[in-house]
Each structure stands twice: as structure tokens, then as C-alpha cells.
Write a protein that binds this DNA or RNA. Structure first.
Length: 462
RNA sequence: UCCUCAGUAGCUCAGUUGGUUAGAGCGGCGGACUGUUAAUCCGUAGGUCGUAGGUUCAAGUCCUACCUGAGGAGCCA
């Protein structure tokens, strides 16, 4: 008989039929007559109840039905006689696929702390919470491709190993095949990278944006979706060394088109999850974050507030609130300022634009005032900046001027500059931190709990 | 990287102003119980108190260093 998944069985309306089920035992209850075995196979958050009359099965087999063991069950799918579930399986055959020694198995019937489960990242997929989180993570990855595909964007695979270290987005991991002991030296006494694999220093990418612009200035609209790496010694619930980013880049888009896209995109993703991951979201809303569903619906239904940086600074200065870092024009906004704007003043997501040029990257388009650039940050409640983007500087003269001011080596980025040299066009783009999006949508408060195998300082197990 | 807090049984924690054989709940194991829902009830085993030094008659408790984790800050996504 063909195996049915728990999802198929629980959503089936056709009862009183023979079925076969395979999965892992979550809990086992019962008395001296009958055993109730909750079996889960990860296809859906719910487990299905298997009922086994003890008289019909060898004691030796039933002894091995322990939490964590894998079993195959044949039996009849019937309406449940007990409360708590609509259908269950009346077992006629039970086969132990894999034993699980309860003395050694780390996961218990009761809940565990997230810290403990992080140390057991290889097994935490078997818990309800992490099952839900990673099913949702999948759904969102799929929704992102669907969204852009439906809009005519092309997915561009930008390199993970990059020779450019000029993006200025943070410390990078070096990539080399040279022996760390006794690496060849050049005449100045430094490492001689001409003998390295690529014949030059290389790193893991911190962003695919610059390469993304090359795609957009030919294909019109592209997006990248891949891993990025930061070698920063950041120890916070929002930072990891390896994370995924979505970076759309569009020719013929100005900053307003860019904002429209960012807002529509985020609302689409929330709506997609609400539609496709109901069970998982309801579980998370109940067990992890009681305000989750309400917050998601609110963000989906309400337009984001759009203000300039200058207006935001004005609001903060007039707020009368005492901040740890006093506000003045020119200061990069701190977490406390962003939170005040989003959570207390506007009480909704906020898009801030036109930041001072001195606190933003070289490639952002300069405004006519000579002071600000066409940057935009989307700020969300609880997690802060979820999107950072800008209209790009398409004027060669202005771009070169900024690069010289900021000591960005022109010769290393010659290929980037040629987009401005040959048929330059207005274009824009942004970066979305995929993992932070998952945090927002699942209500999980630590980024290490939305990544299957998180990489943080001093931690690269599994 | 900085600040704060924490590390005691498999898990979550308690452990008084330093004082004898270090406790609980849950989980495990054994038993009871005719349908359970984190089942319930009875019994039972289980600990080099993060590591290394130090103070003291005496250290889980005080001091120092280090390791690990969490929260906040910075960097940012």
C-alpha cells in the first residue's frame, strides 16, 4: 500500500479506508488496554493519533514505540472516538523503522528552551515550533520567486566569491587556497596573491548589488536571492555571519517606483503566508507571539508612512523625548529613534528617504541640495530596518566625484563604471534581509532560530 | 567589540549572612489504571555545582582569570 502523509490524512474527508503512514513518534499515552501514539511526519504541524489495542501487538514491538522512534503503521482511517481530533488511525500493523533510546534522545514530550534547541539544531526540526518556522521559510522563498517571476523580473545569480572589496558593506571573509603557514610573500613582505587560486585576493560576497546593477541595465528588472556573508563580530539577536538577501534592481525606476515596489512586495509576502501557512501561523501566534497575526494583518492592510530623513529628525527633536543619543541633523538614526518613529509616533511601518549623503554609500543618487541622497530605509516594528535601498547615481561625473571623496578605488570597479559610460539610465534597487523577514512573519525574536544552521561568532557547529 | 546578567540532575530551576549526607517539578525507568490529549496515580535511579587558580578551619555560595550562553549597545540586513 502506498504511504499517505499526515497532511493528506488529516485533510481527507474520506474515512473508513485502509491507509499506511510513516513518521516519527511525538508522544505516547495510554493504559493497559490501549496506546495512543501521536505520529508526525513534518508535512503539517499537526500529528495524527494512532490507536493500538495492546492485545493485538507483541509486547516487544510496543515497547519500542518511544518518543522519537520512527514507525510504519497500517490501519483504518476512522472518525475519532475521543475529543481533540476528528480522525485517527486504528492500527492493524505496526513496524518499527528506527529505534530511539529514550534515555539518550534529547527531545522530550514537554517544551524546551530555544537556547537548548539551538544546541540541538540537528534535531530541532522535529519540534512543532521549528517545523512551523522552516515550513514558513520555504513558503516565503517560493513566494519571492513567484512574486518577481509574475512581475517579469529575472532571477540573476550573482557570484558568491568576489574579487571586489569595495562595496563597503562590512568586514569580509577571505577566500584562499594558500597555506596559512608559509604563504608566499611578495616584495613588500605581504602575501603574494598572484600565486593564489584566482591570482588575486578574493572574499565571500557581502552583497550582490553591484553585479545586480549590471543585469538591470540590460534586462530591465532583475532580482538576486542568495547568501551573503559578513565577518563582523556582531553578537545580537538580529545578526549572523551568513544570511540570505533578496536584492531587486530595476532600470527606469526612480526612488518613488522603488518605494512602491518595496511596499507592495512586503505586503504580498505577508498575504501569501497568511493564505498558505495558516496552521503554522496560528500555532506560532498561540505559542510564541500572541500579537503576531494581528500585527501581520495590520502591516498588510495599512499603507506605509513615507517621510524624509529631515522630517523624521524634526519629529524626533520636537517629540520632547529624552534619547540616549540626542538627535541632530546629520546623525545616523539609532535603534531607539527608529523604534520611536515606528512604534510610538506613526504606529506603522515607515519608509524614510533622502538621508544625509555622508552617512550613506557612494553609489546613491545625489539630490540637488548637495546634502542628501536618494536613499530609502523601510523600518518595521520590533526588528527595525528590514529594507535598505536607493535610487542609484547614474551620472558618471557625480559618481566618480563621490568615489574619490570616499576613497573607493576606481580601477577595481571599472566594470561597474562602464554601466554609466555606455548608455546609462536611471535605476533603483533595494536589499531585503530574508532572515529578518522570517523573524517578522514568524514572531521569532532571535535570528538564530529562523535559520536552519546559523553561523555566528564562535559558533559553526552542524 | 563594549556593558549587564547567567552557567547546579537529561530539561527548567531553587539553594538564606560561606557551615554536615545538594533539593523540586518535568523527563527516564518500574508498577497501577478500559480512550488518552503535556493523561493521571504510586515507586525509583540520576549531580566532579562551566574550567583553572585563590581566600578560609570550611566554598555551589567570596575573589581573579578564562570559556560558553542570553539581553542591551555599536555595525548593519
Amino acid at each position: 500500500m502506498k504511504r499517505s502523509t499526515v497532511k493528506e490524512l488529516l485533510t481527507s474527508t474520506e474515512t473508513n479506508r485502509d491507509v499506511r503512514l510513516k513518521g516519527w513518534v511525538r508522544t505516547r499515552r495510554g493504559n493497559n488496554q490501549v496506546a495512543f501514539i501521536a505520529v508526525n511526519d513534518g508535512t503539517i504541524i499537526h500529528s495524527i493519533q494512532v490507536v493500538a489495542d495492546l492485545g493485538s501487538f507483541p509486547e516487544e514491538t510496543m515497547k519500542r514505540v518511544t518518543t522519537g522512534s520512527s514507525i510504519s503503521v497500517t490501519g483504518k482511517l476512522v472518525e475519532s472516538m475521543g475529543k481533540g481530533q476528528s480522525v485517527e488511525i486504528q492500527a492493524t500493523e505496526i513496524e518499527i523503522l528506527g529505534d530511539c533510546d529514550p534515555e539518550e534522545y534529547p527531545l522530550q514530550k514537554k517544551g524546551h528552551s530555544f537556547e537548548f534547541l539551538r544546541e540541538n539544531a540537528h534535531l530541532r526540526f522535529r519540534t512543532n515550533t521549528f517545523g512551523a518556522v522552516f515550513r514558513i521559510r520555504h513558503a516565503l522563498a517560493f513566494a519571492i520567486h513567484k512574486y518577481y517571476n509574475d512581475k517579469g523580473f529575472f532571477n540573476l545569480h550573482t557570484p558568491i566569491i568576489t574579487a571586489s572589496d569595495a562595496e563597503g558593506a562590512g568586514a569580509m571573509f577571505k577566500v584562499t587556497t594558500l597555506d596559512l603557514d608559509g604563504a608566499p610573500k611578495n616584495e613588500e613582505g605581504g602575501i603574494d596573491f598572484t600565486q593564489d587560486f584566482f591570482g588575486r585576493p578574493t572574499n565571500l560576497t557581502v552583497s550582490g548589488q553591484l553585479e545586480g546593477e549590471l543585469g538591470a541595465t540590460a534586462l530591465s528588472s532583475i532580482y538576486t536571492f542568495g547568501p551573503t556573508f559578513r565577518a563582523e563580530n556582531s553578537n545580537t539577536p538580529r545578526h549572523v555571519a551568513e544570511f540570505w538577501m533578496v536584492e531587486p534592481e530595476m532600470a527606469f525606476y526612480d526612488i518613488h517606483d522603488n518605494m512602491d515596489l518595496a511596499e507592495d512586495f512586503l505586503q504580498y509576502l505577508i498575504q501569501y503566508t497568511l493564505e498558505h501557512c495558516q496552521d503554522d501561523l496560528e500555532f506560532l501566534n498561540k505559542m510564541v507571539d500572541k500579537g503576531l497575526l494581528e500585527r501581520l494583518r495590520f502591516v498588510m492592510d495599512n499603507p506605509f508612512e513615507r517621510k524624509t530623513y529631515t522630517e523624521a529628525v524634526d519629529i524626533l527633536m520636537k517629540s520632547g523625548k529624552k534619547f540616549e543619543f540626542p538627535v541632530h541633523w546629520g546623525l545616523d538614526l539609532q535603534s531607539e529613534h527608529e523604534r520611536y518613529l515606528v512604534e510610538q509616533h506613526f504606529k506603522r511601518p515607515v519608509i524614510l528617504t533622502d538621508y544625509p549623503r555622508d552617512i550613506k554609500a557612494f553609489y546613491m543618487k545625489q539630490n540637488d541640495d548637495g546634502k542628501t541622497v536618494r536613499a530609502m530605509d523601510v523600518l518595521f516594528p520590533q526588528i527595525g530596518e528590514i529594507i535598505g535601498g536607493s535610487q542609484r547615481e547614474e551620472r558618471m561625473e557625480n559618481l566618480l566625484e563621490r568615489m574619490r571623496e570616499m576613497n573607493i578605488p576606481e580601477d577595481e570597479l571599472w566594470w561597474y563604471l562602464e554601466t554609466r559610460k555606455f548608455g546609462t539610465v536611471e535605476h533603483s534597487g533595494f536589499g531585503l534581509g530574508f532572515d529578518r523577514l522570517i523573524m517578522f512573519i514568524t514572531g521569532m525574536s532571535n535570528i538564530r532560530d529562523v535559520i536552519p544552521f546559523p553561523r555566528t561568532p564562535k559558533s559553526a557547529d552542524f
